[in-house]
Computed example of a mutant assay.
Amino acid sequence: MGSTDGGAFRRMLRKLTSDVETLDADALSEDSERSGAQRASDCALGQEVTMLGRLRSVEICPQEAEATLEAELFDGTEGVTLIWLGRRRIPGVEPGRTMRVQGRVAERDGRKVIYNPFYEICQTQ
Rank of each mutant, 00 (worst) to 15 (best):
K112E: 04
E48M: 14
V93P: 12
I90W: 09
E59L: 02
P91L: 08
L55T: 13
L55R: 12
A25D: 11
C43N: 06
F74I: 09
W84P: 05
D42R: 13
V93H: 13
F9L: 15
E120S: 03
E48T: 12
E33P: 01
D5C: 06
Q125D: 11
V113K: 01
G96Q: 13
D75V: 03
L16V: 00
E94I: 07
T22E: 10
T81Q: 10
L69S: 05
D109C: 00
I90D: 07
T50I: 09
R39T: 10
G6H: 06
R97L: 12
A40L: 14
R54M: 12
L28H: 08
V80W: 01
T124N: 14
G7D: 15
S18P: 01
G36C: 07
Q47P: 10
E72I: 09
L55H: 13
N116T: 06
E30Q: 10
C43P: 05
A25I: 01
A27Y: 06
A71L: 09
K112T: 06
D26Y: 09
P91G: 02
T77P: 02
L16P: 02
R10D: 08
Q38I: 12
L85G: 03
D19R: 08
S32G: 13
T98V: 14
S32M: 14
A8K: 14
M12Q: 15
L45G: 04
D24F: 07
E30F: 05
V93M: 15
L73R: 01
L45Q: 05
D109M: 00
T68S: 09
L69W: 08
Q123K: 12
T22W: 01
M12G: 12
